[in-house]
Design a protein around this nucleic acid. Sequence first.
RNA 1: GGCGAGGUAGCUCAGUUGGUUAGAGCGUCGGAUUCAUAACCCGGAGGCCACGGGUUCAAUUCCCGUCCUCGCUACCA
Length: 679
Amino acid sequence: MHNFKRHTVTAALPYANGPVHIGHLAGVYIPSDIYVRYLRQKGADVLFICGSDEHGVPITIKARKEGVTPKHIIDKYHSLISNSFKKFGITFDIYSRTSNAIHHETSAEIFKTLYDKNAFIEKENDQYFDEEALQFLADRYITGTCPHCNYEKAFGDQCESCGTSLSPDELINPRSTLSGNIPVKRKTKHWYLPLNQYEDWLKKWIIEEHKTDWRSNVYGQCKSWIDNGLQPRAVTRDLDWGVKVPIENTEGKVLYVWFDAPIGYISATKEFTKDWEKYWKDKDTRLIHFIGKDNIVFHCIIFPAILHTEGSYILPDNIPANEFLNLEGEKISTSRNWAVWLHEYLEEFPGKEDVLRYVLTANAPETKDNDFTWRDFQTRNNSELLAIFGNFVNRTMVLTHKYFNGTIPEVNELTKTEENIIAEIEKFPARIANNLEVFKFREALVQLMNLARLGNKYLTDSEPWKINETNPQHVKTILNIALQICANLAILSKPFLPFTAEKIEKMMNLSPKNWEAAGNISLLMPGHQINQPHLLFEKIDDEAIQYQIEKLKQTQISNQQTMHIDSTPKPNITFEDFAKLDIRTGTITKAEKVAKTKKLLQLEIDTGIDKRTVVSGIAEWFSPGEIIGKKVSVVVNLEPKKLRGIESQGMILMAENPDGKLIFVAPDDTTAINGSTIK
RNA sequence: GGCGAGGUAGCUCAGUUGGUUAGAGCGUCGGAUUCAUAACCCGGAGGCCACGGGUUCAAUUCCCGUCCUCGCUACCA
């Protein structure tokens, strides 16, 4: 085990085209903040780095849509995001942004170094070009008809109607969104990182050297990528928003956003300190990336490959990626507004930053996707944070004021019970720390709560309110120890619940202490005066929860009304155009799954005029058995097309429900005769 | 379909290098208590450890297969 001298901890750069939500917090920022706060409390040399990721096409699209500049968008979200983090007590040493000059210089420099080392492959290929706007078109800047579902506003990279990933070449009738013109193909040159050449190196570094210390989800995902064979990846794009490619004659080309974004960690460090190199180039520095699982490939494979080739940088020692957090059973979605936004939470639950920190840690998606529900949020606040932690501190403080006017009493004779309690207290710092060291934040938090439980049990068992008459000397001992537990809680809860820890410190007149100070009963000296107690947490009532649930329900309703309904009709066609279509009623006579596909069913349809084979992408919604005998509407004069080697001789008409499920568009009356023309 | 990660009490999760009664928190039921935000404390109930085979003296744990969830990937006239 390497003995590291310092830590560089990074948290994934949030993309500056929207606000941040609880999924971001639970997945990346809370665990990283807990870890860093813990390290700092241990007196470690640690740097905590983050910033906004401000390049890439989606930002330019959003800007165009809203009629503002990309700069306007990133400024808006950079400050919104940065603010939310600050208010939640995420203690980055620096929260930078990739639009800064220093980042452009740094990423250009690294690109250039790799370029000079011949680390890239140059490839020339055809790409769509807008002759009016005089620029190459990013995939997102091209719209056209989806070849799969005929949706007319599909993008060059994806059809939002059927969800298919596309390449611009597949689009029917492509158009530039910049000018509306039909784009032309032009040759353009790009650079690729030949990831395939890194396979042996990655195998050794990840598969062999990090088999045991990386989380199984991270390790498994990497292994999957490596085993499946890696492909060269383009590192440049034709775009005018981003880091300019630092080579001559490359006007209009920028670094692909995934290339420059992780370099943002380095440039942010540079911006923060002149000493940045020791945090990135010294073998004694431990580099840790906190990310969500969607980022595994970039942080475990691509970015390390870049750093490795550059040559002077260290590689990450661990990459604790979390899985995803769902909200009330559904995937969190920015575009569908299915989220709890941090800036809204801060307004609706003022002073409850720690409550959310607690709930998201207790329910963190460390090993698998997890679900955030408002009911669970309420229960964890009321029955755990408040009832166990808050209540213990409160009852201890109240008793101290009642019996000793807020002065810490001295410890007298220790019974066996006290000796056991003290021995227990000693174990907690290590117990919590051991879990934090291996990124088990959930379990660490459970241990913290167990300390409060220990305190509650001790008070209840020793009943100072009963023995005050008969044995006042022992009451002093009991309360001293209970108060020492509170002081320990102030220290040990700080990484998790920083605002609460500070409140306890204030109530107890206690100066902040480092981690090693905890684990004993000498934190408060007899005679020390404490302040009046204030409640650390308050009950969250049904009303507040109901309001949040209602809010989500409204979102759901409005989503259902707007989803997938294209409000602009297609251009008019003549009757002659319509008459070209030959749609017949038919009956499904056979159905079977197409081997090795998830969505395809091979159907045999009795169209009244013949029996023919149709391949249809409905397997996700219908099993072969349930649709045999089903009446359907079939386009019988569609040009046949081969799918997965099977010739499809027609198309079945389907409609789509708001939830994405396809339903048959079929004759209302089952007496409809096969072959009857639909007109 | 391929690959990866998961499938353990009502809920959220531990755990098992194969071995006597499978754990925790919350919830639930009962008891005790009143210092404390009806909170705390004690106790009970609640599990074919996804399903089917196999290996073994013994499997929730190992092997094979199946099903379900999530992710990546292919594919969806």
